[in-house]
Amino acid sequence: MSQEFEKYPSTPLARELRQYRMLHNLKQTELAANLNVDVKTVGRWEREEIILSDIRELRRIASMLGIDAERLGVASSFFLTVEQADEVIQHVWLLVKQSRYFEAKPVVEKLIGDLSVQVRSGDHDMLYRLAKAHQAAGHITAIMYRTSETNIALYHYREMELAARQLQDQTLLNVALTYEGDMYRRKGNLSDAVAYLEAARDEAPEANNAAKGNGIQLLGRAYVQAGNVKGFEQAMAEAEERAAQGTEDEIENTIHGLYNLGTVYEDYNRSYTLLNNTKKAFDYLELAEKTLPDTVHWQTLLKTAQAATLVQSGEITAGIEIAIEAAELCKKHGTLRLLERVYTIQNIVERMTRDINRANMQLRDVLHGPIEYL
């Protein structure tokens, strides 16, 4: 019986498109949306009905896929335009919003490499884009890597800080210092965390409202972990006020949706759970659930928050069920930072179990006395 076999693609573009879709489990419609082209065009490229020869378009596609231009048959010695760099950065954040971190990481790493060449040649217009690329890379690696690997994200934020200081851009400087501080907080170095977060507030007074609000929120998070409850409450009140006043464009372009009223409410929930004030924790969790966008990232975050609060309040079975759902989502999308929160919940449950077993043994001894062996 004769069979028709699909022809192996012979052009570099057809091979790379098909390989990219297979690696990331994408349909042609999804890849077409990534590349900002019609789905029929992607199909014709893959079937080699159209042989793309436009060098600029091939280079654009290579940038969007995070691969070297040579893999599409194009010499790589070229400079990105400002428009091309902005398009790739926007594409990376779109992938982040969809929790497609495995795709976003190589794209932004390739962009950083390309922009670094242009910055070395004195192109200061691209220095701003390089800073924004390091911001995206810092966020992606902070989400994808464990706390033990936080130095990778810290490197990107330090590079962002250096570029911001050279550009004398206070908004970029505020964001860079804020996330350097948050990485130190995550590592448990609270003194450096507070120092960097207060520097973000004090050294960049002309930063825009979104950057300031985001920095103040993360400063509040560091304060509560350092035991400064008054400082925490003052910082969070300011963060909430700034979030309510912020414009959507400013928040999107500066913090890329990572700071808003919903994130403030979720931070209140997390901190009050840590302080064992479960009444306030549940109140703010309800506000966060009503306010945060309905995306995979935020819904996963909310599940970890809900699980932690339930466990802390003694509703262990319900909390564990939700923690399991959150863990499965974290593993699926590679969000190891959120998965670490589930590990924290497990540690709390194990501590509770030890305390309960110890108390039960003491109660048993009182009720029944020591067991006598003949």
Rank of each mutant, 00 (worst) to 15 (best):
V342E: 05
L275F: 01
R354A: 15
K280A: 11
A318C: 05
L258T: 12
T291Q: 10
L329E: 13
E286A: 15
T291V: 03
L338F: 04
V296K: 14
E248Y: 11
E350P: 02
R354P: 05
M352N: 14
D249W: 11
T247M: 09
L301A: 11
D294S: 13
N277S: 11
E241A: 15
I356H: 11
L258K: 11
Q234N: 14
M352E: 08
L258E: 14
T309W: 00
E252R: 12
F232N: 02
T254Y: 01
Q245D: 09
L310R: 07
N269H: 09
A323K: 05
Y272K: 05
N277L: 07
N360H: 13
A318E: 12
A288T: 04
Q299H: 11
D249S: 14
K230A: 13
K303F: 04
A235H: 03
L261H: 03
T304L: 03
L301E: 10
Q346D: 13
E340K: 03
I324G: 01
A318S: 13
W298N: 12
A288W: 09
E233L: 15
G314H: 02
T247S: 14
G227C: 08
G314R: 02
I316V: 15
A307N: 04
A237V: 08
A307E: 01
L292M: 11
A318G: 15
R354D: 12
I348G: 06
V342P: 03
V229A: 08
E252H: 10
A243E: 01
M352R: 13
N357P: 03
Y268T: 02
L285S: 04
A243D: 01
Q225N: 12
L275E: 00
V349P: 01
K332P: 01
G231Q: 06
N357L: 10
L336T: 14
T273N: 07
D267M: 13
T247I: 08
T254K: 00
F232V: 06
M352G: 10
N277M: 08
Q299I: 07
F232S: 04
A243H: 02
Q312F: 07
V264C: 12
K303N: 09
R242I: 15
V264Q: 00
A243F: 07
Y284L: 07
